[in-house]
Design a protein around this nucleic acid. Structure first.
Lengths: 199, 199
DNA sequence: GTCTATATCTTGATAGAC
DNA sequence: GTCTATCAAGATATAGAC
């Protein structure tokens, strides 16, 4: 904050990343062009390669990791809504259904489409998405353990809940209906109840 | 089968669709080129537009619907392995984990990547993926009802199981590990048990 | 119906003036 | 650091010989 220039620099860079987050979630990695990102960020085309000399892959990796960190915090916030992990998780799912409507069925998960696209085609980006998913699962597992789920089951339970959410988003976007997410809410509750019972 | 020519015609068309199925599952819709498909199908480039005058969208729609129909049969076959819907579903998940390894973590679901890519960008293809997902869910719901799940819960249960499978595939491909699918196997069993208990 | 050549457009990326 | 012009390669799609 010592001079206006560096602040402006930061802001341009930030606008590019933010534009990338929004476009990748709507159109995916291959479906989004660098020019499109520059335009959406209201930044000159050359600036993208100034800030991201590694090109599209570097930008995408930063987009994945940045939005991954934002959502990691979101997991913590959402799960704090109740001491009961069943209630907290079910509430998070119904909240996600509202988000889906607000976004007009753009992907509520900023990295899902990219994750599927790059899984077999770009090792560096695949690893980035893997680490982000892993961070969400680890955090959720810790919260479930604190909520009474046996430690031996917490990780598998957390992974299944994230899988349920991602899959429900996929079905919901395809159908343009929140019904799959609401159905998944009840299913997630059942999964956690079984884990709490030690099964 | 009255003459060799028309049979050969069918075969070329079929090879194109089959190549599309394989490439779309690895590289997605925007990530796969028409030339790439022609080459993989060992067909002349012009043949694609001869058989699919509607271009890439028409070909993709046929790929989605064709592979959707194949997998609809697969659902039936897999679920016939046991009279108990819990066992049959859990077995299907562990079998899917093996398939994932055999495919070297290419997408076992032929339409997942495409579904996310087109959900917000191509209405015609979105509808095709929606109808395919719906057909799987309806079929699975009918089998669950036959297996003792209350009719009022069968559809939501089936949708949740499909969501769990699709989400587990996503996490598994990103991590290049079958662990998420194996974890989801237990979770799916818990979801169905809860439904059988009427909850 | 098969196959090749090509038209047109868009992509990711670079060079260089300012 | 900003911005424009441009490159080479890729895309989808078409035209037309055979």
């Amino acid at each position: 904050m010592s001079d206006g220039k560096s602040t402006s620099t930061h802001e341009t860079r930030q606008r590019i990343v933010r534009a990338g987050i929004e476009l990748f979630r709507r159109s995916g990695y291959t479906g989004t062009g660098m020019k499109q990102i520059a335009e959406a960020a209201d930044a000159p085309f050359g600036s993208i390669y100034h800030f991201f000399p590694g090109g599209k892959v570097q930008l995408a990796e930063e987009v994945v990791r940045t939005s991954g960190a934002v959502y990691l915090n979101l997991v913590t916030t959402l799960m704090a809504s109740s001491d009961d992990p069943v209630t907290a998780t079910a509430d998070a799912f119904t909240g996600a259904a509202d988000t889906l409507t607000e976004l007009d069925f753009a992907d509520p998960c900023p990295i899902a489409t990219v994750a599927l696209e790059v899984a077999s085609t770009n090792e560096r980006l695949r690893q980035a998405t893997s680490e982000v998913f892993g961070s969400w699962i680890d955090r959720l597992a810790a919260l479930y353990t604190a909520g009474g789920v046996p430690a031996s089951l917490a990780h598998d339970t957390a992974a299944s809940v994230i899988a349920l959410l991602e899959g429900a988003f996929m079905l919901a976007r395809a159908a343009r209906s929140t019904a799959p997410v609401l159905a998944a809410s009840g299913a997630a509750a059942a999964v956690i109840r079984a884990a709490l019972a030690g099964d």
